[in-house]
Amino acid sequence: MAANQPLAPATASTGSRSVETVIVGGGQAGLATAYWLTRAGRECVVLEARDRVGDQWRERYDSLRLFTAARVDGLPGMPFPGRKSAWPTGRELADYLENYAANLGAAVRTGVRVLDVEVVTGGGFAVSTTDGDLQAVNVVLAAGSDASPKVPDVAAQLDPGIRQLHSSQYHNPAQLLQGPVLVVGASQSGADLALEAAHAGHQTWLSGRNHGQIPINERIAGPLFWFAANHVLTLRTPIGRKLRPAIRRGGSPLIRTKRADLDAAGVHRMTARTVGSQDGRPVLEDGTVLDVANVLWCTGYRPDYSFVHPAAIGPDGYPAETGGAADGVPGLFYVGLIFQSGFYSHLVGGAGRDARVIADRISARTLAGHPVAMQGW
């Protein structure tokens, strides 16, 4: 079925269209879920708010590369093209996802934003979108955990003459003012942007907790990292359960850009966090005051499920779910959350693993007595 096929007509009784499963989000997690549902003979529709599948990756900084090699970046049924040892760029991934969607065999609607998901008395969901209303037996929330950029309160205290950009707004060094740069957040994106700023001739500080690094080269480290992400750093192991909160707060180790790269480029690595201001300048928790012209906030994102009613949220700001199934809301599922089942859950090549679990649960639930009359999808 071609992407962006017109939606089925509304029913006379409700004024809305019936769909067995609505998947919110056309990124890797949503598309992988649609793949497994389609293979199981279950019909679904993927709703992607952006105009093109993959745009969430096209919007990221120009130099972005995945920190996993192409050999493990494919989704179910379609290996990632090109050299298997290459580090795909964000735009290469975007094009891959767009091609994947076009060959998926499921309805993928772009430019359709979901406004509201509400549980219906008696079962199912009412889904309100910018292209009309839907009724669904199941809803899969696959829009990821990066809905809302997270910027510390101290940002509002800094001198307005300092150029401040969240990593979601940053594309390349041409956006920076002349002068020093402070990069806040020392995980992978922070290391990437600090290295880029230094290479562009800016005196650069990188502020944030040291989360470690994988010290060996990619040829050896890649397979080891992939094994650890899939078998060690999971909710099935004590170490995985212990590390999950830190990883969800943005505590991933450096994988591609290493501390030696930063040191060689002259980046000043500061393990103290940025916590305040003095005369409009940023202050680190050790009292260091930095006179900079730019601040890049590589401080992550917050999930946003305010459009889902009800959507139980845990103390960490993530949905209350068990194995991807929402606690207390039958038929509501999540996929693609950071460390949902393991470190692999939010990696491109790991999305298919959790997606298959969710698709199997939906299939079992439907066969157990939750049918729906499909209308021409």
Rank of each mutant, 00 (worst) to 15 (best):
M1I: 12
A2C: 06
A2S: 10
A3P: 08
A3S: 12
T11A: 14
S13T: 11
S16F: 07
S18T: 10
E20P: 03
E20N: 07
T21D: 13
T21F: 06
I23R: 01
A29G: 01
G30W: 02
T33G: 00
T33W: 02
Y35Q: 11
G41S: 10
V45Y: 01
R50Q: 15
R50D: 12
Y61A: 05
D62H: 13
D62N: 13
F67A: 05
T68D: 05
A69V: 12
G74R: 01
P76S: 05
G77F: 03
P81Q: 09
K84A: 15
A86N: 03
T89L: 06
R91Y: 09
A94Y: 04
A94Q: 08
D95F: 04
Y96L: 03
N103L: 12
G105S: 13
A107D: 15
T110K: 05
T110P: 08
V114L: 08
D116T: 11
V117P: 08
E118K: 13
T121G: 13
T121A: 15
G123S: 09
V127H: 00
T129P: 08
D131N: 14
A142I: 10
A142G: 12
D146T: 09
P149I: 07
D153F: 03
Q157V: 07
D159L: 05
P160F: 01
R163G: 14
L165A: 13
Y170R: 07
P173E: 07
L176Y: 03
L176G: 06
Q188V: 11
A191I: 08
A191N: 01
L193D: 00
L195F: 01
A197V: 10
A197P: 03
A198C: 12
H202M: 06
H202Y: 00
Q203I: 10
W205G: 02
G208H: 03
I214M: 11
N217K: 11
A221T: 09
A221S: 15
F225K: 12
A228M: 14
V232P: 06
T234P: 10
L235D: 08
L235N: 04
R236H: 07
R236S: 11
P238T: 08
I247Y: 07
R248N: 14
G250T: 09
G251S: 13
R256E: 13
R256P: 09
R256L: 12
R259W: 09
A260F: 00
A265I: 11
V267G: 02
R269P: 04
V275T: 15
G276A: 15
G276D: 15
Q278M: 14
Q278C: 14
P282S: 01
E285H: 04
T288M: 14
V289T: 15
D291Q: 13
W297K: 01
T299E: 02
G300F: 03
R302M: 12
D304E: 11
F307W: 03
H309R: 14
P310H: 08
P310A: 09
A312H: 05
A312P: 14
I313Y: 00
G317Y: 00
P319G: 06
P319N: 05
G323W: 02
A325K: 03
V329E: 02
G331S: 10
G331F: 07
F333N: 01
Y334V: 05
Q340L: 10
G342C: 04
S345C: 10
S345A: 13
H346S: 15
G352L: 10
L367G: 15
A368N: 13
A373N: 09
G376P: 06
G376D: 09
